[in-house]
Simulated scan of single mutants.
Amino acid sequence: MTSLWNWLDRAAERRARRLAQTTSRRSVLVGVGRALVASAFTLPVLPFDRTGQALAAGAHGAGAKKKGPPTDTDCDYWRYCSVDGFLCSCCGGSATSCPPGSTASKVAWVGTCLNPADGKNYLVSYTDCCGRTPCGSCFCNTNHGDRPGYRLGVHNDVNWCMANDSSVYHCTVSVIVGVAD
Rank of each mutant, 00 (worst) to 15 (best):
Y77N: 01
Y77L: 02
Y77T: 03
Y77A: 10
W78K: 02
W78G: 05
W78F: 08
W78D: 02
R79L: 14
R79F: 05
Y80H: 01
Y80Q: 02
Y80I: 00
C81P: 01
C81W: 03
C81K: 06
C81E: 04
C81A: 09
S82H: 12
S82G: 15
S82L: 11
V83S: 08
V83R: 04
V83K: 00
D84Q: 14
D84P: 02
D84N: 15
D84G: 05
G85E: 03
G85S: 07
G85P: 06
F86E: 05
F86Q: 09
F86C: 00
L87F: 10
L87D: 13
L87H: 07
L87Y: 07
L87T: 03
C88M: 09
C88G: 05
S89Q: 04
S89V: 10
C90L: 15
C90R: 12
C91M: 08
C91T: 07
C91P: 04
G92D: 05
G92Y: 07
G92E: 10
G92I: 09
G92W: 13
G93K: 07
G93H: 11
G93Y: 10
G93L: 07
G93R: 14
S94V: 14
S94Y: 06
S94E: 12
S94C: 07
S94D: 14
A95P: 03
A95M: 07
A95Y: 03
A95G: 14
T96R: 00
T96M: 00
T96C: 00
T96V: 11
T96G: 00
T96A: 08
T96N: 00
S97Q: 10
S97M: 07
S97N: 14
S97H: 06
C98L: 09
P99M: 08
P100I: 00
P100L: 07
P100R: 04
G101R: 06
G101F: 08
G101H: 12
G101Y: 05
G101A: 11
S102E: 09
S102V: 00
S102Y: 02
T103Y: 08
T103H: 09
T103F: 09
A104D: 15
A104P: 15
A104H: 11
S105T: 06
S105L: 12
K106V: 08
K106M: 12
K106N: 13
K106L: 11
V107C: 06
V107T: 15
V107A: 13
V107M: 13
V107Q: 15
V110P: 00
V110I: 13
G111H: 03
G111Y: 06
G111R: 02
G111C: 07
T112G: 04
T112K: 03
T112I: 10
C113F: 11
C113G: 11
L114G: 11
L114C: 10
L114Y: 12
